[in-house]
Computed example of a mutant assay.
Amino acid sequence: MTPFALNSPGGFARTSGVADLVVYLHGFRSSSRSVKAQKMIDCFDQAGLSSNLWVPDLPASPARAMAMIEQHLDARLQSQPELSLTFIGSSLGGYYATVLGELYAQASIVLLNPAIKPYDDLQDQIGKKKVYFSD
């Protein structure tokens, strides 16, 4: 399902329905209050589709983040087995979206500058760190 199509070098036009559930997954040390997440929320609000969007605040732990996402999705799919899914992932969220796309074969995936090897690239980030957009 393609909800938007490029209609000029600078703009997109809505072409068809959007997935029942679009999950925006932010990057490492980011949150639902990031610029990209807020633009996503605003876009869905303006289109009257805010109920189709889920922008969770992901824990820093990849295991906890994936468990939280899977728990939410499995509960939704149990009550709505035909639920169409789209994952939009930025940075580490792009890595998560890739993994989730393999777990949920019916899903579409959009990647924004995805992390390719976070298990190597984020080694220096282990430990207590400040999360952007919060204290």
Rank of each mutant, 00 (worst) to 15 (best):
L77N: 04
K128C: 03
L53A: 09
K130P: 14
L49M: 14
Y96G: 01
Y95A: 05
G94S: 05
Q71Y: 12
K128R: 08
Y95W: 15
S84N: 02
Q125Y: 15
G89C: 08
D74Q: 15
A47F: 13
Q46A: 15
Y104E: 02
W54Y: 09
L103Y: 08
G127E: 07
D74G: 01
M68V: 00
D124T: 15
L103N: 08
G127H: 10
S90I: 12
A67V: 01
K129F: 09
D120P: 06
V99D: 01
L53T: 03
D45V: 05
Q71R: 15
G93D: 09
S79Q: 13
T86V: 12
L83S: 00
E70G: 02
A105L: 09
C43H: 11
A115I: 09
I69T: 10
H72P: 02
L92S: 03
E82A: 13
A67C: 04
G101S: 11
Q78I: 01
A97M: 10
N113L: 04
A97S: 12
F44V: 04
T98I: 00
D120L: 13
A105F: 09
L111H: 07
G93N: 00
E102L: 08
H72K: 15
W54V: 06
I88R: 02
Q125V: 07
P118D: 05
Y95T: 05
S90L: 08
S84D: 01
G89V: 08
A60Q: 14
Q46R: 15
S91C: 09
G89P: 07
I116C: 06
S108P: 00
P114F: 13
I116Y: 07
N113A: 10
V131E: 12
K117R: 15
L85Q: 05
L49C: 10
A67W: 10
V131Q: 10
A65D: 01
M66Y: 06
L103D: 00
Q106T: 02
M68L: 14
P81M: 03
P118M: 01
D121W: 13
F87K: 01
A60I: 14
L73S: 04
